[in-house]
Amino acid sequence: MKARPHNVCLTALAGAAAVTAGLLATHAPVEARPDPVSMPGSGVICDQASQTCYDRDGVSLPHTRTYFGPQAERRLWSGLIGRPPSREFSLSNGTVCDVREETCWSDGNGRRRLDREMTRELFGKVTRPDREITTYSGRCTLARGANLMHDGTCSLRLVERRDGVTRYVVNLPDERRFVFSDRSDRLQVTDATGSWPVTYIDHGYTGVFRWRDMTLVATRANSGLGRSRNASEGIGELFKDR
């Protein structure tokens, strides 16, 4: 019997090793990506993506220093100078926490759902939500007199409270936020400049808010406003499913 050449044997062994390596790679377990949000201590939530920690009062410099170091604390401190205290903050996993409501929410299909674990960890309890907070996409224009300040996308949010106060929140991409409150059919807006009476005009697919020298025109995406008997009901059609 004629012996195989030495180089042929080496080639066969190399091919077998490659096949074995391929099989091992195919069946090797895939490591799960770690959650960027952690709860390292009681009442503390830390976000690895932003190198920031939070407690029941919002952004926390001391906890950020403890878990991410002095450099992260200095960076955070510089970003907070001159800004009002945080009332709401967002985490990189999509969770949003409101320190006034003492509630954390997770987004799903455009609706905010109560995040029981995060709420319990941060605030020490699970608060009962007033109602599911529904968010819609839209397009807004904001003008002060003849000066156009924004013309583009926006989000519309409805918050109904058990005390009978309804809030309509319009968020612009530049972090401007307008909160319209409906109290006994009387509409007012609140922002950093104060609270002002508002007139509302229903234009079918579009609602127009006017106060002082400001005009905010909001159009809800893929849905319109129903004609109604008073301003309160008209605004409700802008923010609610029919």
Rank of each mutant, 00 (worst) to 15 (best):
T103W: 13
T103N: 12
C104P: 05
W105E: 07
W105V: 11
S106C: 11
G108N: 15
G110I: 13
L114N: 10
R116G: 07
R116H: 15
E117H: 14
T119N: 06
T119W: 03
T119V: 09
R120Y: 14
R120P: 03
V126T: 13
P129M: 09
R131M: 13
R131L: 12
E132F: 12
T135E: 14
T135W: 05
S137R: 11
G138I: 00
L142M: 09
A143L: 05
A143P: 00
L148R: 08
L148N: 12
M149Y: 02
D151I: 04
G152V: 04
G152M: 04
T153S: 14
C154V: 02
L156M: 07
L158W: 04
D163S: 08
D163H: 12
G164V: 06
G164S: 09
Y168C: 01
V169A: 03
V169D: 00
V170R: 03
N171Y: 05
N171V: 05
L172F: 02
L172C: 05
P173I: 01
D174L: 06
R176C: 04
R176F: 03
F178M: 05
F178R: 01
V179T: 07
V179S: 04
V179Q: 03
F180T: 02
F180V: 03
S181K: 05
D182E: 15
R183H: 15
Q188S: 15
Q188F: 12
Q188W: 10
V189F: 00
T190W: 03
T190C: 04
P197A: 07
T199K: 08
T199V: 08
Y200I: 01
D202N: 13
H203I: 02
Y205P: 06
T206R: 06
G207K: 01
V208H: 01
V208N: 00
V208A: 00
F209R: 00
R210P: 02
W211Y: 15
R212M: 14
